[in-house]
Amino acid sequence: MGILVDERTKVVVSGITGRQGRFHTQQMLEFGTRIVAGVSPGHGGEEVGGVPVYETVQAAVDKHGATSAVLFVPAPHVRDAALEAIAAGLSPVVVIAEHVPVHDAMDVVAFAAEHRAVVIGPNTYGLCTPAGRAKLGIPPGRIFSPGPVGVLARSGTLSYEIVAALTEAGLGQSTVVGLGGDRVVGTSFVETLKRFAKDEQTRVLVLVGEIGGSAEEEAAEFVKGLDKPVVAYLAGASAPTGKRMGHAGAIIERGRGTYASKRRALEDAGVHVADLPWEVAPLVREALGRLEETAREG
């Protein structure tokens, strides 16, 4: 249940001996994530919080049957570490680092496509399937609860805000996926929506988008043929043209990727677009209510 990761997911943490790697390995273990091994060249044979550390991803896979990877390596090493994880047959491969060169990201994406691996990120907080106690990445574990809402987002803290509000309103999540704030990321809204469409646990979707690029417009096109209701929130309504709003991808260039264009596309596809972040949870509740009504009538 949920998508991409669940209780069967066995995780290897690449870059486990760094400050971020150590801290978040601990956090993920506390959440219940099955972390079977860590990788850090030069640190093979050590342990981090009881997790054995290996020199290579392949060694971790051979020894522990890892299925998935989370990368805490710094941006300049992402290309190497991601290709290593993909070559070892892992999927999804979650790339947390920000500031990954876009040409490196394109290399990773192409290599993943060739090996049929899913890459989440770069510049993501990761993903979480609450019912499977599988959290791969850095979001605070306490904001999640299991339930029928699938969440997909480009930004991190904004999705924490929205997910926490869902949880507080008693609206649990099937899987929450952070796709990443960069221009080129491994997985798109559309690919993620396709997975959610097939997931039985997921009944309503929440899409958290932002200005820049055309991922939201492409998602809108797909939503037209989707039989699950979608609620959206878009950040950047007041952003000026030509200024990067923190994320590499959040920039309106030459009049493209504007809030207005994204909002129009989504609304034309029947998506309820919230004006304010805290309106998302009530809209999700309404959508679930309508589903239940239809079910009773049917």
Binding site: G156, Y160, H247
Partner: peptide, 12 residues
């Protein structure tokens, strides 16, 4: 803290 929430704060 975070690009998305900062953008949303400005919007709000």
């Amino acid at each position: 803290n975070g690009a998305g929430i900062t953008m949303a704060t400005v919007d709000v």
